[in-house]
Design a protein around this nucleic acid. Sequence first.
DNA 1: TAGTTTTAAGTTTTT
DNA 2: CTTAAAACTA
Length: 765
Amino acid sequence: MREAIPGNAFNHPDYLEPLNSEQRRAVLHTGKPLLILAGAGSGKTRVITTKIAWLIREQGMDPRSILAVTFTNKAAREMAERARSIDPRAADAMLRTFHSFGAWFLRRNGSLCGLDSAFVIYDDDDVISLLSSVMENAPKAEVKHWAHKISRAKDYFLSPDDPDLAVIDHNKKFRSIYKRYEERMAQIGNVDFGDLIKKPVEILRTQPETAQRFRQRFSVIMVDEYQDANVAQFQLLKELCGAETYVCVVGDDDQSIYRFRGAEVKNILEFPDRFSGADVIRLEQNYRSTTPILKAASSVVDYNHGRLGKTLRAEKGDGPLPVLTYLPDQDEETALCADIIGNSVKKEETTWSDWAVLYRTNAQSAGFETMFLRRAIPYRVVGSLKFYEREEIKDALALLSFLVNPRDEVAFRRVVNKPTRGVGGVTVDKIVEEAISNSGNLMETGSSIECSQKARKGLDEFFKAIKDAKALLDDTAAENKPKKKKGKKAPAKKQQELKSGEGLSVCIEQILIDSGIAEYHKTQDEFSGNSKLSNLQELLNSASEYSNDYEGLLKFLEDIELDRSMREEADKQNNLQNSVTLITFHNTKGLEFSHVIMTGLEQGVFPREDKKDDELEEERRLFYVGATRAMDKLYLTTCAERRIFGRTMQMEPSLFLREIDRSCLQIENSAEAGSRAKSMFRQPIAGRSFNPLNLQSAANTEVEERAGWRRGQRLFHEDHGYGAVFEVKDSDDGPIVRVRFDNGSEKRFLPEIQGRAYEKVEEDY
DNA sequence: TAGTTTTAAGTTTTT
DNA sequence: CTTAAAACTA
């Protein structure tokens, strides 16, 4: 937020001061294509953001003609913020992910390939639903297989009629499956992730005027994490670059970890050939880690072949050696992590947020979560935020998708009969079939089709809910109280209803209530003690920032589809900002932590089983990425046995542990670690403990006695952690105990039935 | 046909 | 062990 500094020396404005000579060369470079080989922690983001500012200030470049592409939304946001802090005008530059750029492009130019601008983006689950509808009654596993192949084909810019399609799969069936899928998708008028890249390229190739327009619009194009670009993305870059375009890509071949989804390291290796006359600048000064950490990481990736090769120098110099601990099993592993972290924080050497625990697969997070809950260590799980994959959220999004696009078969099938309104599979199939041979509009077809009386009533009810919500959007004067219609089913229970705030949440609230989805999930909650309704509420909250119109809704859906990390707000609300990070190796890219623990270093887990040759090299790079996240201290753990599928397996230490240079590794034996792991360490979370007794309670002994729980009783639950009882009351099913957990969530349970899951604990543990 | 119970299957990594 | 698909019952 600083004001622009007038350069005190013309050639060296202040903001170039912190740069080393290589970084400065990269910033000041012009005239030819540029490849920046940026090692881990070498300040590449600083280079890109400074370059953007420099282009605007010193080169007089119009910010709007600068396009910078990243691979994650987080990276895009960070880049925008940092560039803006050097020069506020950078706010007008276009900083997006490849996919969000593609969506932006298609909203404006989609009509050139027959795509309506109001398309919805299908995620992998939606793709599978659509494909299984195309493939009649194929087993789900097979559908998944082909869905993956189709996605892969799009990564390589291959259409169903491409002669090279056999590169993806030589099975003859593939071509026809892919083709039918594309036809069906075209009828529906939606797109998948691959389309967001592939379709723009097709438009740019077949429409020279459009291509020309965009080449004039962007005179500078920069690509971050270029080693992760796939073939289609490379083509997109090529099409956007005219003779005059200045192109600059930044990447690190040692950090290419997305081959499985089509990333081509070749893109970076061959950049100088593909963009003739390109210059190459290497950034080898590392500002993040200590020498032993870098050395340990490099010694592993050195085993790879075909690298561009580079030598990182640690600005920080020497530091403590990485510590490797051999452990008997995964329970000891989670306990050790809790110990190391807990002891360090207790001694005030670190705070919770200095720590990250890394694992290869999301499934491994469960053990750490349980242990951290038990030891009252605050944590947040990055990535596997399955928020948007939850049933209730997908239901809500399906309703909205159908509202936007009444040809959306996948959304229609999902919610037309939820809650059940007598519209069964037979009727649905009939509608879809009929629609395919007509306009494709399922709403129109469904309104006029012949069907049972029961189905007719149900359909009308469903369509009315959609139409009413739609009317809310079209109506500019949305202020005219869109109050909830007297919920006819809801016997007005005093339980928390959905509350709309402002903006788009008004419309979404209405559709959730009218469609019966809110009521449906509320009932589910009461039965099984979930919190689906509050998840829906959370969705509503995030919608309130969007405008209550068509455009706002489209933006909302797009943001959700393309940016599943946008829940940082929720983390903040839940006091999770100072907490240990649990994260997969893949998700750590671009992040850094003072202290890092790399877990599960066993053959079969990491590297994963039957990985060899190219794939093994990718695992090695993944190891390298993980290790180079650590700024000050690195820990590694490996277990002698591990439970997989509930069966206990004997494990071998990871190949990578043998490859690490022995001179930069301190090895601890399991016996010592084991005894340490057993010492219980429990520390309450400062300021997070909730005690309702402070609220002074009237005597309520009778019910409390029958329930066996009293207000203020502290307790522990395996899934939710620590909390306290704040209410005990009667109901038809006997006493109900209401609990508020330290993480802010509220639960209720019937002591007779679910009481076993709640363990009473003393006030000060 | 809706909801429940039984059986089988499966775990990379993500825009 | 946990989840999803298939089978079964009311």
